[in-house]
């Protein structure tokens, strides 16, 4: 910024001389943006009516800033809630908590019968997953499905929300019944991963119905009828559940792209 604007072009620019060519105008404006000294010279050159006009504008702007609307307040916690919350699952939280509570009460009452908490644990997250992905319960599904964060990111956020609402009641029930956390946690995670994995191909709702229905019919119902605790929910099956949960989670993340579109 060594070369300041010579007096002649500055005067011509200030007066709005139509003969000033574009290249000179640009050079003058670029210099003015960065040089307070030349801006002061420009102000001195300005004709009195222009200065009066500028003063008026300044006063009006100042008044507008003082009396105008306040800048919108930024409410960080509300924004956090919007980005994480899966609004449609909220009514369903109460249902799951109620079911776990009922299973817990029955387990306390009849300790010799197969644990209903353990039989419920694998399928507890499925309804929440189905609801979180349901077009009917998410009014904005079509708008969100076409955005960049659809796919892996929304998949992870929704799953975290669903698990965060399902696992605490299960943890509480399991702890009060003196069970190993792995016994209910690993089947729960495995079924969650399997639902998301199959859901990428046939739809999460359908996958949840097939897997949840299959478990209830093939394992839970016979266990309740025969009063035998099935082998799959006994501690000896834990290594298999651990392997299945790990493999399922990895595959789900790898196949997250399946959730990028809705059909």
């Amino acid at each position: 910024m060594t070369d300041h604007i010579p007096a002649a072009p500055l005067a011509a620019y200030t007066a709005g001389d139509p003969h000033l060519d574009d290249a000179t105008v640009w050079a003058v404006e670029v210099h003015l943006e960065n040089c307070a000294g030349c801006r002061a010279r420009l102000a001195e050159l300005a004709a009195p009516p222009l200065r009066t006009l500028l003063d008026d504008v300044q006063v009006t702007i100042d008044r507008g800033v003082r009396t105008g609307p306040e800048p919108a307040r930024r409410r960080a916690w509300r924004r956090l809630a919007h980005r994480w919350a899966v609004w449609s699952v909220i009514p369903w939280v109460a249902t799951v908590a109620g079911a776990v509570l009922a299973a817990f009460a029955l387990d306390r009452q009849f300790p010799e019968r197969p644990s209903l908490v353990l039989l419920l644990a694998p399928v507890a997250p499925l309804a929440g997953l189905a609801i979180a992905w349901s077009r009917r319960s998410d009014p904005a599904w079509e708008i969100t499905a076409g955005t960049s964060r659809a796919g892996l990111e929304l998949l992870l956020r929704r799953t975290v929300v669903v698990l965060a609402t399902v696992l605490p009641p299960l943890a509480l029930a399991g702890w009060r019944l003196g069970m190993s956390p792995a016994l209910w946690l690993l089947p729960s995670l495995t079924f969650t991963a399997a639902t998301l994995l199959a859901g990428g191909l046939i739809g999460v709702g359908r996958a949840a119905a097939v897997l949840g229905g299959g478990w209830l019919l093939a394992v839970a119902l016979p266990a309740v009828l025969t009063s035998d605790l099935p082998a799959v929910v006994q501690p000896s099956s834990l290594p298999a559940w651990a392997a299945a949960a790990l493999a399922g989670t990895l595959l789900t993340v790898l196949r997250a792209g399946d959730h990028r579109r809705v059909n």
Partner: peptide, 20 residues
């Protein structure tokens, strides 16, 4: 479709965030 509890600004901001 929209979320009834969002304000206009919050909803448009949410969509801007979804579009990264």
């Amino acid at each position: 479709g929209f979320y009834p509890r969002f304000t206009v600004r919050e909803y448009v901001e949410y969509m801007a965030w979804l579009r990264e």
